[in-house]
């Protein structure tokens, strides 16, 4: 512990505070603008209103519902697809497993706009799929699956799950019993962190969704872009406020879950 009036410490503190100000300032501006009657005249002069929030719900309620629905569906899909993969990768430490892991992570390494375009080119003409919300779901699962796999895999590896499983086997537990009594409970911190990550990413996904969506399947971030482009600043701000109210609790929970999953000591 160094003394706090060390000039190096002060310089660092000032610098970090300035950066924090740069990051948080606009968020505060946005929240205030969302409840200001007239942003041009300022909040003090024009007063506080919830009218803009009301307008947002009138205009964009379906986008919010659709985004929440897609986020939940994405979560279910990544749980079903991703958790077994993480388990298998942890148990099969070979060249083939590393290759499979590499392949699974690929979708994250390629920009969403490229993946979105590829999906449209390959599947856009197949029946009603293009206009159905599951088209967006597919894109979101593609993009979030690696996060579920990696988060779960990290915890499984750290928990020395293969050794625990051998112990359970030696005590007579078959595959299913092991999976339920040993694997799932010990992987749960990673699964939880992965789940929060998946929901957070799905709620905010834009790069791919802008291409994938149709007028019938507009998600929250696409709606945000629409409001920024064609509505008053106050409506855009109010809509952003709604989004932040959904997102920030998820981010806080995610931080908590990630700390728990990595077993990091709580910071003072």
């Amino acid at each position: 512990m160094r003394p706090h009036f060390d000039p190096g410490f002060l310089a660092g503190l000032v610098f970090a505070s300035l950066v924090a100000f740069f990051l948080v300032g606009p968020v505060i501006l946005s929240v205030l603008a969302g409840v200001t009657a007239n942003y041009q005249r300022g909040i003090l002069e024009s007063g506080i209103t919830l009218a803009w929030l009301g307008r947002v719900f009138e205009l964009y309620a379906p986008t919010i519902a659709l985004s929440l629905g897609i986020a939940l569906a994405t979560l279910v899909a990544t749980l079903l697809l991703g958790v077994p993969v993480a388990y298998a990768l942890a148990k099969a430490p070979g060249r083939l497993a590393r290759l499979a892991e590499e392949a699974l992570v690929m979708p994250v390494a390629i920009p969403g706009i490229a993946t979105g375009l590829a999906l449209i080119l390959a599947w856009g003409a197949v029946g009603e799929f293009r206009t159905h919300w599951t088209f967006i779901l597919v894109g979101h699962v593609l993009f979030t699956l690696p996060f579920m796999v990696r988060s779960t895999l990290a915890v499984i590896l750290a928990a020395k799950l293969p050794a625990l499983e051998e112990a359970a086997r030696s005590l007579g537990a078959g595959f299913l019993a092991r999976f339920v009594t040993i694997v799932l409970p010990n992987a749960s911190p990673g699964i939880l962190a992965g789940s929060l990550m998946v929901v957070t990413l799905s709620l905010g996904e834009f790069n791919m969704t802008l291409l994938l969506h149709t007028p019938f399947t507009m998600t929250l971030p696409v709606g945000l872009a629409d409001s920024y482009a064609s509505m008053r600043l106050e409506i855009g701000s109010a809509y952003t406020l709604v989004f932040l109210v959904l997102l920030i609790p998820l981010l806080v929970a995610l931080q908590w879950a990630a700390d728990r999953a990595t077993g990091a000591p709580r910071r003072p």
Binding site: A16, V19, A20, L23, V24, G25, P26, V27, L29, S30, A33, T200, L201, G204, E205, F206, N207, P221, L224, A225, Y228, L233, G236, S237, T240, F243, L247, I248, L251, L254, Q255
Partner: peptide, 21 residues
């Protein structure tokens, strides 16, 4: 917490923050 707040903000929202700035 402040420094990591915008983590996972989508690009559109970031764009709006720049407009506000």
């Amino acid at each position: 917490a402040f420094l990591t707040l915008p983590l996972a903000f989508p690009g559109v929202v970031v764009g709006f923050m720049v407009i506000l700035l």
